[in-house]
Amino acid sequence: MNLPNDAAGQEDVRAIISRHAHREGALLPILHAIQADRGWIDETAIRTVAHALNLSRAEVHGVVSFYHDFRTRPEPRPVIKLCRAEACQARGSEPLAEWAQSRAGDRVAIEPVYCLGLCSVGPNAMLGDDVHARLDQASLGALIEAL
C-alpha cells in the first residue's frame, strides 16, 4: 500500500488497465482497482490511465476529484469511517465523533461517512470492509486502541 511513484508501480497500473479496459465505462472500475492496489491515485497513474483510455488528464482528474472515495494523496494512518448521517445522529454519533477525534489524536484518522445502511443500530463505523454497530466510548475506544 501507499507505494511510491516508481516505474514498477506504473507497471501495476498498466496491468490493472489491461484487465478492465474492455469493459463498458471502464474508468471507475480502473480507478477503484488502482486505489485498492496502491492506497491512492497519484498524478502519474492519472497520466497513464488518461493515455490508455484516450482521455485528457483533466478529464481523469475531474473524475478522481469528483468522488469522495478516491484519494489523491496517501493516508499512512489507519482509517476509521464513522457514520455522521441523520439516523446515527439520532443515536448520539455527534458527541461520540468529537470524543473519538480527541482519543485518536494524530495516530488514527477518523473520517466521516454518510450512511452504512445499519441505521437502526448506530452509531456505526467501518474499518476497511469490517462494520461495527452500537458503538459507545468503550467499544469505539477499543477499536481505536487495537489499530
Partner: peptide, 26 residues
C-alpha cells in the same frame, strides 16, 4: 454486471448514476 459507486450521494439520482456508470463525473 455489478458496478461499485465511489462515495457520491448524488449518484443515487438516476441521470447522475448513468454518467457514473459511463465512467464520468456523477
Amino acid at each position: 454486471e455489478v458496478r461499485t459507486g465511489a462515495g457520491a450521494y448524488v449518484c443515487g439520482e438516476e441521470t447522475s448514476l448513468l454518467n457514473s456508470l459511463e465512467g464520468k463525473r456523477g
